[in-house]
Design a protein around this nucleic acid. Sequence first.
RNA 1: GCGGAUGUAGCUCAGUUGGCAGAGCACCUGGUUGUGGCCCAGGGGGUCGUGGGUUCAACCCCCAUCAUUCGCC
Length: 390
Amino acid sequence: MTQTKQRPGLFTIEAIDGAARAATLHTGHGAIPTPIFMPVGTVGSVKALAPDDLYDLNARVILGNTYHLYLRPGDELVARRGGLHRFAAWDRPILTDSGGYQAFSLSDLRKISEGGVLFRSHLDGSKHLFTPEKVLQIQRNLGSDIMMVLDECVPHGTSYDYTAKSIKLTTRWALRSREAFPAALTRSGEAYNLLFAITQGGFFKDLRAASVEELAQYDFDGFAIGGLSVGEPKPEMYELLAHTAPLLPADKPRYLMGVGTPLDIVTGIKNGVDMFDCVLPTRNARNGTLYTSLGKINIKRKEFAEDDGPLDPACSCYSCRTFSRAYLRHLYVSQELLSFRLNSLHNLTYFLDLVTKARQSIIDGCFETLYRAIVELYPDEAASAVFQSI
RNA sequence: GCGGAUGUAGCUCAGUUGGCAGAGCACCUGGUUGUGGCCCAGGGGGUCGUGGGUUCAACCCCCAUCAUUCGCC
């Protein structure tokens, strides 16, 4: 929480509770207390919200996406506007995803080779080649605080042989990225672009370990676990998470990409993960699924049509302070723009409060209590998972 | 008043030579994990305007009637 300027990339651990850590990651745009949840703002905007909303929610860092911003409006255009921070009027840290996941999620459009990923734009069908170097140049043009290397994210069900080759490719790409950016480079003598590697390995423990081992020997500013939550059963995800997270360098931030539900997040923290991002709170907000101290509720349900109470009595967000469930349901059913905004405000409040509480509980040495409370709050999801004894 | 057209799910409409009544939307219930304001899955719901007739069998054929609508006096 310190406001004093520290060297970007510096990662200081303040407390440890079991495997869970409370730490601070310093960037060119300020410090990030961890564990942290990072709202996703794919095209330079957290959907339905303005930067002031995010400041009010105490969001500390948001995501942007290389693939999407490169296609529209273009990274060079953003650079000419002074970078993404200035363009989007956001002065806190920005982490940019590399586009590796889009190669996976838009896979009918892509071709992967040693050089990089050849893909077709979902906007106009035009062909583009993403190389590890190009992806970093784009992120640098955007002025990203935390850049992610290009990786190959393989779908659940990918064979052992393919996955084994894939992690080698991901490692080679990471090393090319490291060469392109040998250290945490300064930019305009002010902002730094930190660089995180992404470990892969599909659903094979030895490949997960091999991927970590290969990448961890190099000087990256942080290490991510990629390729989870790609359609696998929950127990499998938790097993691999518990297997992989402890292998990552302890003195660097650990980032579980694209995850997840509140239960996933506390499970990640329990296993020593520091950073999370997920579209779930914002996408579900737009689809009427809201996270509350009472569990997950679907605001479109008829039972809320005349419910005058607040969405979540224990929540202090603007939506909960001001509006009734009946009104929120009405806005959703009517597909009013305000529905997107109010629901997004609430869900992000929930996720950000969750990690704030997790951090405090780690400092206080009682993280396990919080973890158990979340397990009890989402019994269905917890029942579908097999918990590792850690 | 005369002539035509149309009445089928909440809405807009399909429905073959007469053979177990359908779609889209809406509605209800789930889902959504490094974001194409999407998408997916499941569900409830109709005395086929009404009354007769023909037929083993009628949303379908015949008669009457009511309603809506268009055109012409």
